[in-house]
Design a protein around this nucleic acid. Structure first.
Length: 544
DNA sequence: GAGTTTGAAACT
DNA sequence: CAGTTTCAAACTC
């Protein structure tokens, strides 16, 4: 495994798991949120919810990602850090839950601030059930989430933290977070003085304990349950409130000011942009009710505490990668109104007439967006039809739990480039028109595809004229026929392997020498290849 | 802008 | 799971 160091910890890249794992003790996994946090998005590393959060300046490929940590296996998750100035305690909660659960079990004023990368069909990684983040969960959900934490190690951690801080005379019990009227275990947060930023603290909830990081010294907290297999994250805001309607957007003038944290979500303008360019689908806002302010797209999750429900800069599932969306996001740093305009400009309006924009036919719906400036008829993909929308989402997920996952990803083991997760099924377009989802996504067809007459493959003489032609493509298939790769399906590979194994077993049974056995296996492999190639020519009408 | 083509989604 | 229908986007004229 490859090691690399984080701000406060060391991580190991576990290639076998395609993820980063902490190589130190549990206490070391969470990074502090220093002042610099405000200038970049929070990065959440896949498979390690709550394990690693860090922020980065712009890096290659994906803005906001540090060069040293940039990796295709990473997901750029986006946090809003609601900041307020009211000294009364306010609370925002994020939780890691499954997306279907997240969609289906919302009952209160919730706002989905960190879109699953999968919501955009072309997000770099597929959505996995554990990676949604909730913000503004009602107390009941917070309670439930916290109640799910059970850790012996956390208790010890709590004791250690208490001992350390008490001995230093630093600990102060700053707040008792409201865990709901029925909560028998109010969540007590123990935190050091503000100036001691980045401290890991302990939170005791009844008999349970979680690690807490002071996000930026301004009272923003992240609650981490480091011991549970299902890490739970609860960024919280303490000692602040929303007092100004002015959107606290990140600006070049105040790149490091907490008041301009790009992660925060308050004010009257959409604050969805981050350098990473991820959108903030308004799924949860569709489940909001009493605390929602449709006119301003805000959701109040606690007194004096609001979130913005406005979808972020549109990241088309088929027209724009999150990173490519940056031009828009840069443009949107100035005001909420401008943000709306920039986003609406980039958002592609739908024209649905019969689906009420509640089926996956509708790109807005499929992208997790409300319809906005669309030309659709009888649209129900809006806040006014939240119940219908809720049912539609539920139906979609029941039919296909992966319905809202990205169609394009490179998450498959060994994949370097993106690929269509399901593959296309084109028959007449040659996969060279936008009818083809692969072509539209500017990726080549792969073995996953079931297309007929495909010309969208690396080396296709036709595809070489496309603007997104990869520079390393070579014309190795001069027939212009179906992509050979698309014929080598997993079944074909399996069958081939089976033949080779059978040949090896037969050679062993017959007592052949090793060189001879290898030769037999190679001959068998040659026959398999011959059949495959013959099949390719046959399927494309080329004479053998 | 109307009509056609296309392939994914939805349905049976 | 396969075949059919529905749907909306892409495309053509």
């Amino acid at each position: 495994m490859n090691d690399f160091s984080g701000p406060e910890c060391r991580y190991q890249r576990d290639l076998s798991r395609g993820s980063f794992v902490p190589s130190h003790c549990h206490l070391e996994f969470s990074t502090s949120f220093n002042e610099g946090v405000h200038s970049g998005p929070v990065q959440h590393y896949r498979d390690h919810r709550a394990l690693l959060y860090t922020t980065h300046q712009d890096g290659p490929g994906c803005p906001g990602v540090d060069k040293s940590l940039r990796d295709d296996d990473l997901d750029c998750y986006r946090f809003y850090c609601p900041v307020s100035s009211d000294p009364s305690p306010s609370l925002a909660q994020y939780s890691s839950v499954s997306y279907p659960d997240y969609l289906l079990h919302q009952a209160g004023p919730c706002h989905f601030l960190s879109p699953p990368p999968g919501l955009g069909k072309h997000a770099p990684h597929p959505w996995t059930p554990e990676e949604a983040f909730l913000c503004g969960m009602p107390s009941a959900e917070m309670r439930e989430a916290v109640a799910s934490i059970n850790s012996e190690g956390a208790d010890e951690l709590y004791k250690q933290a208490c001992s350390r801080h008490k001995s230093a005379g630093e600990l102060r019990q700053c707040n008792q977070l409201d865990m709901g009227q029925n909560s028998s275990h109010p969540l007590t947060v123990l935190m050091p003085p503000r100036e001691k930023t980045g401290e890991k603290l302990a939170v005791q909830n009844g008999n349970m304990c979680q690690v807490v990081c002071d996000v930026n010294g301004g009272g923003q907290m992240v609650l981490l349950n480091h011991c549970s297999p299902s890490q739970i994250i609860h960024p919280m805001v303490l000692g602040h409130s929303v007092s100004s309607a002015e959107p606290p957007l990140y600006t070049a003038d105040h790149p490091h000011s907490p008041e301009h944290c790009p992660l925060q979500g308050r004010g009257d303008g959409p604050v969805s942009q981050v350098p990473g360019g991820y959108t903030s689908p308004p799924y949860l806002s569709s489940f909001t009710n009493s605390n929602t302010h449709p006119s301003s797209n805000l959701i109040s999750t606690a007194p004096g505490y609001t979130f913005n429900t406005m979808p972020g800069p549109y990241t088309s599932q088929f027209h724009q990668t999150p990173c490519a969306a940056r031009a828009d996001t840069v443009e949107t740093r100035h005001s909420g109104a401008q943000t709306v305009r920039a986003w609406e400009r980039s958002k592609k309006p739908c024209n649905c007439t019969k689906s009420q924009c509640l089926k996956l036919y509708c790109d807005c719906f499929a992208n997790g967006e409300f319809c906005s400036n669309c030309k659709c008829i009888n649209c129900c993909n809006n806040i006014e039809h939240e119940s219908e929308r809720y049912r539609a989402i539920k139906t979609c997920l029941e039919r296909n739990p992966a319905a809202f996952r990205p169609k394009i990803s490179n998450r498959k083991l060994g994949d370097v480039k993106n690929r269509h997760t399901k593959g296309c099924n084109c028959k007449r377009s040659g996969c060279l028109k936008n009818y083809c989802e692969c072509y539209e996504a500017k990726i080549m067809c792969s073995s996953t595809c079931k297309c007929v007459g495909c010309r969208n493959y690396d080396g296709s003489p036709v595809r070489q004229h496309t603007a997104w032609q990869s520079p390393d493509a070579t014309d190795i298939y001069s027939t212009g026929s179906k992509c050979p790769l698309s014929c080598i399906t997993p079944d074909v590979v399996e069958a081939t392997c089976g033949c080779l194994l059978a040949q090896a077993e037969e050679a062993e049974r017959e007592g052949h020498t090793r060189p001879h056995a290898e030769r037999l296996i190679l001959e068998e492999f040659g026959q398999c290849l011959t059949q495959i190639v013959r099949s390719i020519f046959k399927s494309t009408g080329v004479q053998w």
